[in-house]
Simulated scan of single mutants.
Amino acid sequence: MRTAILASGRGSNLQALITTCQSGNLPIEIVAVGSDLPGAGALMLAEEAGIPARVFPISNYQHRQAQEEDILIWMQNNEVELLLLAGYMRVLSPYCMSQIHFPVLNIHPSLLPAFPGLHAQRQALDYGVKVSGCTVHFVDEGLDSGPIILQEAVPVLSEDTEESLSQRILAVEHRLYSDAVRLLALGKVERTGRRVHILQQEELG
């Protein structure tokens, strides 16, 4: 699957996906990486991997829709079949989502629907939960509200800080995102409404 990735930060999930692709264990081709921030580390990682990278600074556009229209054209020109959000800090608008006719996935550092939005690890600590984790889900028009593909729990330790919990969850994110993308690319993800079923070998046609 021809895949584009949008990222706003240092790009650790992007690097994990690139590494898994290079090992031959992920049946996708990352054809383009984009960011809304000119200084994002993800852009440098893409360039180091030989993947075309492009920045879409919101300040360059008169309004949000103009930026998203540029992103849509960018994906069309790259013949994208799958969009992955990897630490992309902007919510795609309902208009943008209505124009995308292929899967869009995101990974979030909590066990959704708990603690959507920013600073999920801090939210988990403030709430006092004993277990957190991460979730790979389809993106819809809401905030971290799309159908869930995979989740994995990570225990919250009594001595955890936001940083230590974030690091332990991130290590799981790197593996879980690739697992979910692999299942999707192999045709093993079946979605009916909000329910996502992972097909076993005997269920495949």
Rank of each mutant, 00 (worst) to 15 (best):
S166W: 03
L186M: 07
E163Y: 12
E159D: 15
S164M: 03
L170A: 07
A185M: 03
A180C: 10
D179M: 07
S158M: 11
V181P: 11
L157C: 08
S178E: 07
L184V: 05
L186Q: 14
E162S: 07
H174F: 07
S166K: 05
S178K: 01
I169T: 09
V172H: 12
L176G: 05
L184Y: 01
V156K: 08
L184C: 02
I169A: 09
E162T: 06
L170H: 11
S166H: 10
S166D: 06
A180F: 08
L184A: 01
E159C: 12
V172Q: 11
P155K: 09
S178W: 04
L176N: 01
T161R: 09
R182M: 09
L157P: 05
D179K: 08
A180H: 06
L165A: 04
H174R: 05
L165R: 02
R168T: 00
H174E: 03
L165G: 04
L170S: 03
S178H: 06
L186K: 05
A180W: 05
Q167D: 13
T161F: 13
L183Q: 12
Q167W: 08
L165H: 04
E173C: 09
D160G: 02
V181W: 01
P155S: 11
E159Q: 14
D179H: 09
R168N: 00
E163H: 14
E163A: 15
G187N: 03
A171M: 09
L186I: 00
V181C: 05
D160P: 01
Q167G: 07
L170P: 03
S158E: 15
V172W: 07
L184M: 02
L186H: 07
R182G: 10
R168V: 00
Y177M: 15
L186E: 15
S166F: 07
V181N: 02
A180G: 14
E162R: 03
G187D: 06
Q167E: 15
R182V: 10
S166M: 06
V172G: 10
S164N: 03
D179T: 10
